[in-house]
């Protein structure tokens, strides 16, 4: 890429930032370094430069010098839109931001976190930052698919992928959002075949993400809220159990329920467990005998038989 173009774009940005009033095209061509060639060439150069800067997220305002004559348009960049302004940041706040920027294992957020921190250090200086020790904590498991999913969500493109649960199947989805729950990302969207909102664990997607449509293929429903669709946040009500447990055993259950002694070998505990009840109970092998509810006793018996 040419140094000339880079240089010209920087000069243009600086000139438009420095001006209080709108600069007309002619003023730009005569004053900003880098615009050379015929009138037409300069015109085309400027149009492209403008698009390029906008693609970088720089807001170029278009307006007129004179409210009475709006025939000649001018350009400028307002400091307020261009500059990062977070006000004073205390050393502790800077440290929080630094930690927050480094929490991510997905490449997209890891990169944008690093860039955000550069900007924050340019805003406040890194010397002030208090270091909270070297331990960098991540609450996120690795996900190579994060970037394409993120792109599909923000540009509203329909996607398809192979999803693995009990069996493997292709799913086509208008992706509405992502949520992080206990270390894993979950994808929420409108399943195109079932016409229903579904939740997918990203770790169970076994293929690449294929884009099935152009941008802006769907709109996020105005009443959409991820939280409403997350089954894991709305667990079934827990089940009350009563069980005999060997004295000195089943420690984690003892802390959750009322214990009464039966004899020299057994205690009785009443406790409640959620959806993981079966594993929690089987964990203690022969040290527990569930007495009620009766349908759970039946289920335990059947599972144990099937395991032999």
């Amino acid at each position: 890429m040419s140094d000339q173009k880079t240089e010209r774009l920087i000069n243009l940005t600086m000139a438009l930032l420095a001006t209080k009033r709108f600069l007309s095209k002619n003023e730009i061509f005569s004053q900003v370094a880098g615009y050379t060639g015929s009138a037409e060439t300069k015109e085309r150069m400027f149009e492209r430069d403008k698009d390029d800067l906008r693609a970088l997220g720089i807001d170029i305002q278009v307006g007129s010098h004179d409210p009475l004559f709006d025939d000649e348009l001018g350009y400028r960049i307002l400091e307020s839109g261009y500059e990062l302004n977070l006000g004073e940041l205390t050393p502790v706040e800077l440290s929080y931001l630094s930690l927050a920027s480094k929490m991510w294992r997905n490449q997209l957020f890891a990169d944008s976190g690093a860039l955000a921190l550069v900007k924050i250090d340019a805003h406040s200086g890194s010397a002030l930052r208090e270091d909270f020790g070297n331990s960098i904590i991540s609450l996120e498991n690795e996900t190579p698919l994060f970037a394409p999913l993120w792109e599909a969500i923000t540009t509203h493109r329909v996607i398809s992928f192979i999803y693995r649960s009990r069996s493997e199947a292709k799913r086509t989805l208008a992706p509405y959002g992502l949520t992080l729950w206990r270390g894993s990302w979950y994808l929420v969207g409108l399943d195109q075949d079932k016409s229903e909102i579904r939740v997918f664990k990203v770790a169970r997607i076994t293929s690449d993400i294929s884009f099935e449509s152009k941008s802006n293929n769907f709109e996020l429903p105005s009443d959409f809220s991820i939280g409403e669709h997350l089954v894991m946040l709305h667990p079934e009500p827990p089940t009350q159990f009563s069980a005999r447990v060997r004295i000195g055993k089943c420690q984690s259950l003892r802390r959750e329920g009322a214990v009464e002694n039966i004899d020299g070998e057994w205690d009785r505990i009443k406790f409640s467990l959620g959806s993981d009840w079966l594993e929690r109970i089987l964990w203690f092998g022969p040290d527990i005998i569930v007495e009620s509810p009766i349908e759970k006793v039946e289920e335990i018996r059947e599972i144990l038989r099937s395991k032999l």
Binding site: T154, L180, F224, L230
Partner: peptide
Amino acid sequence: RAITIADG
């Protein structure tokens, strides 16, 4: 709205 943390 499109990206949230449910419960870290």
